[in-house]
Amino acid sequence: MTVKEIRMFRRFVQVLGLALLLVGGAAHAGVELATSVKKVVAVLDENGQVTRRLEAVESVVPEDVLLYTITFTNAGDETVDAGSIVITNPLPAETVYLEGTAAGSGTEITFSVDGGETFGKPETLEVQRDGTTQAAQAADYTTIRWIFEPALDPGQSGDVTFNVRLK
């Protein structure tokens, strides 16, 4: 091997080692997180009742209602501590949160009106409007937070959801 080839081989070994290190690091204690989005479409059924169904969506137009689902899975081989999973979702700036839609079994749900600095239950949140302190509206929320109460064993998963309307 020439000097140049030796250098290239050393470089290859370094990169390979780094890659193996990364794969190994992710393998044993991991929670995977995924988000998906569907459009909530109101349809009038044959009895004249409005029902809602979910549609796969690539694109939306203003006033459309979207359902976001965040799925978390313990992909590692160790149990995640009870009460330690905290999911935080800043609301996309172009959307308005729809009151009462945040859900997730086994979770405690709180909201932020200050970009995620502080969180609280809806009835405790306040904003400054027109120079006075007023109770926050759903449209004031900037961030949603779920705290998952149970422990999460390897292979287990859960999900949380919320709806927004596109501005």
Binding site: A29, T35, D81, T88
Partner: peptide, 22 residues
């Protein structure tokens, strides 16, 4: 419109690296 969630968790009382969703 981009939505991204983050998740923090602990194992045996030790905070783990924060996970960000696609």
């Amino acid at each position: 419109i981009t939505n991204t969630a983050t998740l923090s968790f602990e194992i045996d009382g030790a905070a783990q690296p924060i996970v960000e969703s696609a």
